[in-house]
Simulated scan of single mutants.
Amino acid sequence: MSKRPERRRSQLGGLSPVAPTSGRIEMAQPAPERTAPTAAAPAAPKRTVTAASSKPGTRTKMGYYAAPEDSERIRAAFIAARNAGRPYRSLSDFQLEAILDKVVQLEAELHGGLPFEGAPAHSLSPGRPIE
């Protein structure tokens, strides 16, 4: 009968994820990113971007309900816009721009062209309105 080998101890045993490391463990440095040469892209139309959407990771998720045929039309319009060279990275970007265009229109009609004040996320009543 052979003996089992002795269990190896982790080098991470006494470390804390929030405390600075004492230099006992060397972390591998990420390799610098290589950028591939790109072909000349068509000029993107100028869009108005809010401060919150200009920072990565600052967007909040918002959902809505749509009829299946409306959802299909939205996806088809997004695909057609991307195939035509529009700079939408995702369906979310496409929908956000459409909504912001409508907000600008409503600000012009209802608020004298001035931006609306911000409303907290939970200021709307959840669910269907009572009729």
Results as ranks from 00 to 15, higher is better:
residue 25 I to E: 04
residue 98 A to W: 06
residue 105 Q to M: 07
residue 38 T to D: 08
residue 44 A to Y: 05
residue 20 P to W: 00
residue 6 E to D: 12
residue 63 G to Y: 03
residue 85 G to Y: 02
residue 53 S to H: 02
residue 37 P to Q: 11
residue 57 G to T: 00
residue 43 A to H: 07
residue 45 P to T: 02
residue 60 T to N: 12
residue 107 E to Q: 00
residue 39 A to K: 12
residue 34 R to I: 08
residue 70 D to F: 10
residue 101 D to F: 10
residue 38 T to G: 08
residue 11 Q to A: 14
residue 116 F to E: 03
residue 106 L to P: 01
residue 95 Q to T: 12
residue 59 R to W: 07
residue 31 A to W: 06
residue 55 K to E: 14
residue 67 A to K: 10
residue 22 S to L: 14
residue 96 L to A: 15
residue 115 P to N: 05
residue 105 Q to E: 14
residue 66 A to H: 03
residue 87 P to R: 00
residue 7 R to A: 12
residue 22 S to T: 11
residue 95 Q to R: 09
residue 54 S to R: 11
residue 37 P to Y: 09
residue 110 L to F: 07
residue 63 G to H: 05
residue 101 D to W: 10
residue 27 M to C: 07
residue 53 S to K: 04
residue 47 R to C: 04
residue 37 P to R: 13
residue 74 I to A: 01
residue 115 P to F: 01
residue 31 A to R: 14
residue 41 A to I: 04
residue 82 R to H: 03
residue 57 G to E: 01
residue 39 A to Y: 07
residue 105 Q to N: 05
residue 104 V to A: 15
residue 100 L to W: 07
residue 63 G to K: 03
residue 110 L to S: 04
residue 61 K to G: 06
residue 71 S to R: 15
residue 98 A to L: 15
residue 34 R to F: 09
residue 25 I to R: 05
residue 11 Q to E: 14
residue 71 S to V: 15
residue 41 A to Q: 15
residue 109 E to C: 01
residue 92 S to I: 04
residue 33 E to T: 12
residue 86 R to P: 01
residue 70 D to G: 05
residue 128 R to L: 09
residue 55 K to G: 12
residue 127 G to I: 02
residue 54 S to A: 12
residue 121 A to R: 15
residue 121 A to P: 00
residue 67 A to C: 04
residue 87 P to H: 02
residue 6 E to L: 08
residue 24 R to M: 08
residue 24 R to V: 07
residue 9 R to L: 08
residue 74 I to W: 00
residue 28 A to S: 10
residue 118 G to F: 12
residue 57 G to S: 01
residue 95 Q to H: 09
residue 67 A to D: 12
residue 38 T to V: 11
residue 30 P to I: 03
residue 89 R to H: 13
residue 117 E to G: 10
residue 34 R to K: 12
residue 20 P to K: 03
residue 7 R to H: 08
residue 29 Q to H: 10
residue 33 E to Y: 14
residue 30 P to K: 05
residue 13 G to A: 14
residue 119 A to Y: 11
residue 12 L to A: 11
residue 16 S to N: 12
residue 130 I to T: 14
residue 78 F to C: 01
residue 92 S to D: 14
residue 65 Y to V: 07
residue 106 L to H: 03
